[in-house]
Every structure is written in C-alpha cells, then in structure tokens.
Design a protein around this nucleic acid. Structure first.
Length: 176
DNA sequence: CCCTGATTCGC
DNA sequence: GCGAATCAGG
C-alpha cells in the first residue's frame, strides 16, 4: 500500500485549497478527503496560511487564557481501531474543467473515500448514498458526514441535486 | 445539540 | 509538520 491518504500529498493539498476557497467547511472537506479529521484540515489550512478566506468573525478580543493544554489524566489507551479502510480513490486525470453552464452530469470530480456503513451503523447525520447492490449483504451507504438537513454528503449532494447550482449549505431551507 | 473556525502544544 | 484536544462562538 502506497499511501491511503493519511498524508498531505500535492493532490490532497490542492483539493483542500480548492474546497476551502469554495467555501466548504473544514468538516465537509475532511469528509471529502477521507482519512482526516476536520482538525487536521483546519491545522493544514492554517499552516498553508490560507485561513480566514473571506470573512472572519469569532471573538474579536477574547484573549485565550491559555489552558493547561491537554489533560493527560487519562492514559489515552486506544486510538480507535480503524475506520473503514483503505480504498484508494481511482483519481483519473481530471483536468479540472471549469463548470460554466453545462453540467457535467456524470462527472465526478473527486471520489472521496467514505466510511461506507451498513444500515445498522447509518446515523441521522450520515450520507445515505447507496453503494452497491441493495439486494446483496455487502450493500453499504456512503456514511460520510451529510449536510445538515439533507440526506447526502456534499459530494453526493452535488450529484443528486444537479439543477441550479446554488451550492451552499442550506440548513433549514430543506423544509417546505 | 448541532455546528463553525482558532489555538495550543505533544508528538 | 502534523493534528487531537480544547476553546470560543453561532
């Protein structure tokens, strides 16, 4: 196995930059990339020096009293076995075309590595994008973090909702 | 409770 | 350099 994506390769960094400038949240980006947490994404974003893409709010002057950092009271035993696994994304040439008026339709820009959960593990906030044959026991759902109010993660939502690319997160707008 | 980015600091 | 833990805020 070369690398399941646990490191910041050029491709991943570029995708990170793209998604970040696209206005996606850190957790969403993390979900798209796979194998990383939103913290990792945020940390990387800061290190890359591209934080605060446009607007920056949050405590104007709330001084951080510097906490005792972490509390090592707990030996921090296990660090979670593993998530779903390593399934490298095919990653085709993908010239990264600008989407003008025509919708690529079947075009999938980046194949994220999802958690791929069974119906049993599927939670409310998980992407319900079906993967595989529903009649087979191997059937899974994407399982990535879904957009609040929608049944899919950002990646699959783009595919599911082609028209009017007012892609932005409509949280309560999802209700009638 | 859900989420957001920001920061610190052990590794 | 990396990212978990923690924070402050919406």
């Amino acid at each position: 196995m070369i690398d399941a994506g646990a490191t910041w390769t050029d491709e991943r960094v570029e995708l990170l930059k793209k998604l970040w400038s696209d206005g996606l949240s850190a957790s969403q980006i993390a979900a798209e990339l796979g194998n990383v947490t939103r913290n990792a994404v945020i940390g990387k974003v800061h290190r890359l020096g591209l934080s605060g893409r446009a607007k920056d709010k949050v405590a104007p002057a709330t001084q951080r009293p510097r906490k005792p950092a972490r509390t090592p009271s707990a030996p921090a035993p296990i660090m979670q076995a593993e998530r779903g696994n390593v399934l490298v994304a095919p990653l085709p040439p993908v010239p990264m075309v600008e989407e003008t008026a025509e919708v690529p339709a079947e075009q999938e820009v980046a194949i994220p590595m999802s958690e791929r959960v069974t119906i049993m593990d599927l939670r409310e906030s998980m992407c319900r994008w079906p993967m595989g044959d529903p009649t087979k026991p191997e059937f899974r759902f994407c399982g990535a973090r879904s957009i609040t109010g929608l049944p899919y993660c950002t990646h699959h939502a783009r595919i599911a909702y082609q028209p009017v690319a007012d892609r932005k997160r409509e949280r309560k707008l999802a209700r009638a």
